[in-house]
Design a protein around this nucleic acid. Structure first.
Lengths: 105, 105
DNA sequence: CAAAAAAATGCGCTCAAGCGCATATGCGCA
DNA sequence: TGCGCATATGCGCTTGAGCGCATTTTTTTG
């Protein structure tokens, strides 16, 4: 029961986050601003097709939206992402991003 | 840099959670109590070897600990799981578990 | 219209995740 | 010691994720 419900979304989100480059993209995009693929490529050291596909996965999971702007496509955090799902992303971002303690120590 | 640091752990955790049966096991185990494989098998409709391996993945990710008790192996939530990682699990569990709204409506 | 920049996509490859089946291992009990 | 229950693991298979490469699509500018 409820095969196409919330469970699916949670799994989609978790699977989307469970890849280093995608999580990196989410970290960048999670500032609320818009970022083109070219920027993400460069900052994450990924090739064009690779980055494009990864963003496709994030979009399919509902985590980001895209907007065409001239020759660029601007990605940004999906503002309509349900709270409970956003909470997962927030926690993941906070975990990797929130504290260099272990390394800094 | 920091290849074996927090990043790795976060990815391990996310990958571990990104599988329905494993997430189901986490939900059960997240009550703090101990649960044998046989119980998890039955409640999650999984075969023995399948469940055993899934628990192995969760253990490798640091999410659970196991304890031998007679012929059983009791799994439970790892109490030493770092806060930031526990927060990810909490968010995931809450997302799937916390509200039957869509289905109940 | 031609050319160039940015992004998406078709194609084929590789590799690992997940599975079932069978077997091994650990443990209690007769 | 031998049997039975609970769990782990070796093995081989299938499937899908992720990748690079080349090509196409979209849009701007000369």
């Amino acid at each position: 029961m409820r095969k196409g419900g919330i469970d699916m979304d949670v799994n989609l989100v978790l699977a989307a986050l469970a890849e280093p480059t995608r999580l990196g993209a989410i970290r960048i995009v999670w500032d609320g601003g818009e970022h083109c693929v070219c920027e993400l490529m460069e900052r994450l050291q990924a090739t064009q097709s690779r980055m494009s596909r990864h963003m496709g996965v994030l979009k399919a999971a509902g985590l980001v939206t895209d907007r065409r702007d001239a020759q660029w496509v601007r990605y940004r955090r999906n503002p309509d992402l349900p709270e409970e799902l956003a909470a997962i992303v927030d926690a993941a971002v906070a975990a990797v991003d929130g504290r260099p303690r272990k390394a800094a120590a």
